[in-house]
Design a protein around this nucleic acid. Structure first.
Lengths: 227, 227
DNA sequence: TTGCAAATTTTGTGATCACAAATTACCACT
DNA sequence: AGTGGTAATTTGTGATCACAAAATTTGCAA
């Protein structure tokens, strides 16, 4: 008998490094850290030039992000970062409150002491960013904090859904921070870490829920009155 | 004064008819009605030939669907319809139970008597399809039934998330129906219509939840033992 | 018949080009 | 200076090509 693969699926030899993946990561990071302003036009050739590739991989990535509602393709074909609306904002908040506590709940049994320490480390960087008013760093570390938890869940379904949500509200939140600053920001990260250390599912769900509301609740809607 | 657009956004003149949209719709419908078998390889040139277009628009659509986890791009670049796994199945079920009752709840105030009648019409077609054992028609009409409700919510966030979920489980469910048939299928559609007519939010949520469990609960996991 | 290696084909990736539609720039005219 | 129309530019779309990697087929030898 042969020692052939025990599974008839996923041999998955070696990860290839395509230009598309680089472009994808670059644009996603830019969206998540708020380097794209809502309403701002995005052009294929512009991004391609900026990233040093041909328009080809950019086209594919834009389609990807448009499918996740992170970019908007108008009917004239032009691409832009979607504008936030009160309805969209409320729905994103609702969806986050449905999905993210669930993800945290799934992750909890898999979270180790090392994870808790790493989360504490990230949280201290968040505090540092808030102190210096560096909104871009804050957004990156805040994202890291949440998805360090969620990713531990090994979720294949809920995790991509949450990913899509973050891509949708991040650019807008960046504009809010630019307007009202970051000094008033509060979060429930220390409570979350404590809940993880105590293996307390109820407390973790509550911390995540409250954290989402802290981030988007009062502060968030404030910016929607004008624009 | 001018009669110019009252909003400073979205003039959106006329919808363009691109090859990409046609390809997108064709492949989505094929996935939702189970014409693609999980694990089946999908090739750019093959689809392009089949749909009478160049590989170009197919590439973009595949990227879109891959971003929604409706197609899987392996690390060697090959594309296939994702295989179902017990974990994925359970998570999809969980996600549906989180999102779809909420969508129905949002839709309820906007649903009219005409909607209820249309839903009843669709449900009769479902019964007809079940009678003749036409799984493909069943899947199309069942999809129509659910999204006729959900779409009424005018949701911009939760609706695309639910869309992604349906694309992920539809191909697998088709294989289940092919194995065990459709005669044993039960649903809660009549209860849902009744709840809509009575403007009973609690009853509608319950009907949707039970309907999801009827469709995926016992029957669904049965097929996961082998493959 | 079986195992293995070379050759052929298939496939995704990235780049370039042509084209049409939309946007922007420009300039004459009132 | 404001306005209207035309020209120039920009932009997304679709097609084709070259290339490399992977999968498949073929052919030869044990």
């Amino acid at each position: 008998m042969a020692v052939s693969p025990s599974r008839l699926d996923t041999p998955e030899p070696k990860p290839r490094n395509t230009a598309r993946q680089q472009v994808d990561e670059a644009i996603r990071t830019a969206l998540l850290t708020g380097r794209f302003i809502p309403g701002k036009a995005v052009t294929l050739r512009g991004l391609a030039l900026e990233l040093g590739v041909s328009p080809m991989p950019v086209r594919e990535v834009i389609q990807r992000l448009a499918a996740e509602n992170a970019l908007e393709i108008r009917q004239n074909g032009r691409v832009q970062v979607p504008q936030m609306t009160p309805q969209r904002f409320d729905e994103i908040l609702k969806a986050r409150l449905l999905l993210e506590p669930e993800l945290a709940d799934m992750a909890l049994p898999l979270l180790t002491k090392a994870d808790a320490n790493a989360l504490e480390e990230i949280d201290s960087k968040i505090d540092a960013s808030l102190g210096t008013g560096d909104a871009e760093s804050y957004m990156r570390y805040n994202r890291d904090f949440h998805f360090r938890i969620y990713r531990s869940s090994r979720s294949e379904i809920l995790l991509p859904l949450a990913d899509s949500l973050w891509l949708q509200f991040a650019p807008y939140m960046r504009t809010v921070y630019g307007r009202v600053g970051t000094v008033n920001l509060v979060d429930q990260h220390k409570e979350a870490v404590r809940a993880i250390r105590n293996h307390d599912a109820t407390a973790l769900r509550l911390a995540i829920s409250k954290d989402i509301e802290d981030g988007m609740g009062i502060l968030g809607r404030a910016g929607l009155l004008d624009q």
